[in-house]
Design a protein around this nucleic acid. Sequence first.
DNA 1: GCAAATAGCCAAACCGTTTTCAATTTTAGA
DNA 2: TCTAAAATTGAAAACGGTTTGGCTATTTGC
Lengths: 341, 341
Amino acid sequence: MKLKEFAKKVGLSPTTVSRALSGYPEVSETTRARVAEAAMRLGYSPNVNAVRLKTGRAGAIGVVMGRAGEFHFAEFMAGMAERLVAEETDILVIPMADPNHEDEMQLYRRLVESRRVDAIIVHSPKPNDERIALLHELGMPFLVHGRSAIDVPHAWLDIDNEAAIKRATSHLIDLGHRRIAMINGRPGATYALHRDSGYRMALQSHGIEPDAQLIANGNFTDELGFRFARSFLEQPNPPTAFVAGSMMTALGVYRAVRSLGMQIGRDVSVIAHDDVFPYLTADNMVPSLSATRSSMRAAGTRCADLVLQLLSGRSPLEIHELWPVELILRESTGPARPSSP
Amino acid sequence: MKLKEFAKKVGLSPTTVSRALSGYPEVSETTRARVAEAAMRLGYSPNVNAVRLKTGRAGAIGVVMGRAGEFHFAEFMAGMAERLVAEETDILVIPMADPNHEDEMQLYRRLVESRRVDAIIVHSPKPNDERIALLHELGMPFLVHGRSAIDVPHAWLDIDNEAAIKRATSHLIDLGHRRIAMINGRPGATYALHRDSGYRMALQSHGIEPDAQLIANGNFTDELGFRFARSFLEQPNPPTAFVAGSMMTALGVYRAVRSLGMQIGRDVSVIAHDDVFPYLTADNMVPSLSATRSSMRAAGTRCADLVLQLLSGRSPLEIHELWPVELILRESTGPARPSSP
DNA sequence: GCAAATAGCCAAACCGTTTTCAATTTTAGA
DNA sequence: TCTAAAATTGAAAACGGTTTGGCTATTTGC
């Protein structure tokens, strides 16, 4: 049903009906109630496309999805959804063809120009991320999930990866570990750099020299967790502890350790980063996994919230949130055993 | 830049420009090329909201996301994205507030009325799924990922869960197993019923009576996999094999088996369903996991494809795809050991 | 009691396209 | 060369709302 038609049924002008439904103050409370009731009863709702054309708002927040099919992604979106469900805002998932840089920038440019979204959430930024520069230049509201060192004003929410990993590493050192391996995410993203930095800071503040032989980067898969852990453990001077980038990585590490006949928490300690997934919990692993923990879902919820604030006029400069990360100690960490000489 | 403005720069009428860009045949090849070039050079692209209002197309396919934050979801969407990236079609993720039935139907109704999507993909249908009836009634194009027995014409794509599980179960029986546990998904969805049916068919055709004590339903989480497997194994007459609903469930089962000092593939056999995730592969588990396998990503790609066909006029009645499921045998399955009497 | 202010409502313009219908130019046929 | 048919192009009318500015009633202030 169209506005005109509906307005006629209610016995009012389209103008008044439109205002009544949008909650403008110039319409009396009685009329508003009457209109609202009639809309509900007759099932009238404005054509979104007309509204969007007229108002220039798209009613959607864009999220660019890479090809990798990250398992974090669904959880983050579920969090966003939690916040947006009450709002009249959807999540628009934009597929990214190739992780090719040129194409990616083109994608963002077109996305902005197409006006399909009111705001964009940028994931896994790099220290000098051109997407941020571009979006700023194009005047598109956006929020960065993660951090960038780029000199362009932007809103962001990040977890304190550096502090988290520093603390995790320090804890391992306090337990007596000296050879601590680090399985990080893909190089380039700020979060990976921060984690690396936290790792190195912890080592160096205890006078331990980082060993390139114990540091690896790659996707968060169980397979890489296994391969890296296995190759580290087979070195002449193997690590006695691991810092792993994700739950999947941790699964791989567990397997590698076991496959060599060693025991997690006794022969080898493991701390991983846990984004809190309902389907795979650190607490239920055997032995239970010590983890740096921060809810990806909560981040999604908050990011959606912040984007809405951004859209209602709050300055990006005011929106900077750094979330602390918990360190939960469980059974996968234990004192270093005196190495056999 | 607006069409009018752009048309002026090119020295043509808005009409012709619009036609040139949309590929209508009435415009000469030379002009089309000229317009296309100018559009690229000047960065003109039509305002989507205007186009949508005028054409009535939304340019998006809707996917309703439950609160559960399924890990399958991201993979399916990544698959869709693979197909849609070349198309001018986005994925609209609609958050679902409560899994409350009333609300869910209301959500679908509103989604249709809002005209934000051209088509909807319905996941995990039930045998008599009211969403299907509703969408059909409202005349919204939709595709069901999974199957429903409802007597309403609809397009669907499903994997052959029944045959897959029947085959997996039969294989276990052939290996000599008689006590085979089944950890299925949440009850209600057709896929769970089909799996249950496949399981029972296999048992019964070998003269084995299904034992309710060995059948469980629940979310696909490692925790439930562990809990169910553990409780089954602690029964007086424990199972010697498991059919598990997902990779996460399998992780839990593995843990449970190990925690009781038994060995997967020797003391207990396991077959799980593998949706093929890049971050957790059956092949890399230890021992490697025998699995019924079907790529969730490929399903997403194909579903997107079929939806596009649906939108370009193909009848839903013609669109019925039942995908066979592979059974990959690895190390987690082995002959039943003679039980100690 | 009267002017001014305030509510409450409406007509019409506009958002930026697509598309119908008509006009114009080209091409083909005789 | 002229005419009918075909190929191009344009003007203007939608699409379905929101919003500006104006117009009546009704209050309010003095």
